[in-house]
Design a protein around this nucleic acid. Structure first.
Lengths: 240, 240
DNA sequence: GCAATAGTGTCTTTGAGACAATATCGA
DNA sequence: TCGATATTGTCTCAAAGACACTATTGC
């Protein structure tokens, strides 16, 4: 449906009925953290669009110039409609625009970085609404991704990792209250780089951006729970 | 012209003749380095668009879905048509999209970071085609900027500074061959932060990304000329 | 007790910053 | 010669990393 319309516009335009009107979409690279695995939520492409094989694509849709006030608003509306999901976090990441993206004409996609709780994603997967695919280092993404969406995921992850290294953005992969071990694991997974727990602890505490919360009980010694004072803070130095 | 058309689309859409079709433009925040002053090139808004007073705006224009292959290509075409200028460097920076930008409806602008030689900019200014305004720290931008363009400049500069701190991107403000003092000055100006010449020299040379060129003669002791081996390299650490 | 995870202390290495000293040109 | 800028050397301090050690729970 989405991409069928894109080619329709192109046809119309070559016939001269319309001015060259770019198609504009918003897309989400929606991440969830499952233990040490970072996963991306993808939706099946509607049967109308594909030539037989089962293709996956990023959740997204058209901007509605009538009701959307900005791109993040547009994305939230689309995700709500598509999946009934309100992500824990959404931010505009980058735009990919051009006429050779396989959409049949000029199209412009504003790609967003989004995060949701593993519970909500697991539920959607159980309901058959999304597929969760791992984005591990070394490992290739599945080959049945539509258009340039594999590229978009890689780009989004790379920007996510860059921002994660010196900000608290990974916190949105975790519950409101978390342990330092949880936070450390999130940093390691997103930045794709191991680091020393003791040093991590020192650096993050010295940054003075965490406030203590309840003690959390797990499988070993109970750990101090923390929450971030602010939803997003930037550090002076790299944390991991 | 540009923004008049934007409202036309909105009118059409409220009358139901068109689907809600977002307007899409590309814009350049075009920087030039003049000694220790970083300046941005702005063009006068056409008389048709403004209500009397002289407004300035970023050079930019509509995407032409027929001939543009990507946003950087679109921007280069627009700058060539508007100013006869081919910038030394262009890269997509960020996108601003929404319905409350003063353009009379939903519009999406892909903002680019661009750089040109001071000579070419000076020439365009002499020909009355552009105004050059300084973007110094502390100092406010002029108040006669159209729409949200003052914001766009600030955002672009902030991203430029962030990227400049750990990459060689500022080199495009300089001639092909430059001295370490030149390069140091460019880093200081863009990152808006003074740094020690000796330490800068050590760090940039240890990065092993410069190759020696001819010796350059200035007003004191002649300096070794250098060029970058690659057009854009990322450093492990902050350079300034 | 043991397994498992949380948390502390400390040593070493590296890089950042300050700054003095020396070098080489043109006038 | 001097003024101006380039270039080198070295010292200090702070942050990063490695790693051994102790602490507290459940079983």
């Amino acid at each position: 449906m989405r991409f069928a319309q894109a080619s329709a516009v192109t046809h119309a335009q070559t016939r001269g009925e319309l001015k060259a009107t770019p198609v504009q979409t918003v897309e989400a690279v929606l991440f969830g953290l499952f233990g040490r695995e970072l996963k991306v939520a993808l939706i099946p492409m509607s049967a109308a669009d594909q030539a037989g094989c089962e293709l996956l694509m990023l959740p997204g849709g058209y901007v509605d110039a009538g009701q959307d006030v900005d791109s993040e608003g547009a994305l939230k509306r689309v995700l709500q409609g598509l999946l009934g999901l309100t992500p824990r976090y959404v931010e505009q990441s980058f735009t990919v625009a051009g006429s050779s993206r396989g959409t049949g004409g000029w199209s412009s996609s504003i790609v967003h970085l989004a995060m949701a709780s593993p519970e909500s994603l697991q539920e959607l997967q159980a309901a058959g609404k999304i597929s969760l695919v791992s984005v591990l280092p070394e490992q290739e993404l599945p080959s049945n991704l539509a258009l340039d969406h594999a590229d978009l995921i890689k780009q989004a992850l790379s920007r996510f990792a860059a921002k994660a290294a010196h900000s608290s953005i990974v916190s949105h992969l975790l519950p409101e209250v978390f342990t330092l071990s949880d936070l450390h694991r999130a940093f390691e997974v997103v930045c794709q780089r191991p680091s020393n727990p003791a040093n991590f602890r020192r650096k993050i505490l010295e940054a003075n951006v965490l406030v203590s919360a309840d003690v959390l009980h797990g499988s070993g010694r109970p750990a101090q729970g923390y929450r971030f004072e602010q939803p997003l803070v930037y550090f002076d130095r790299q944390i991991v």
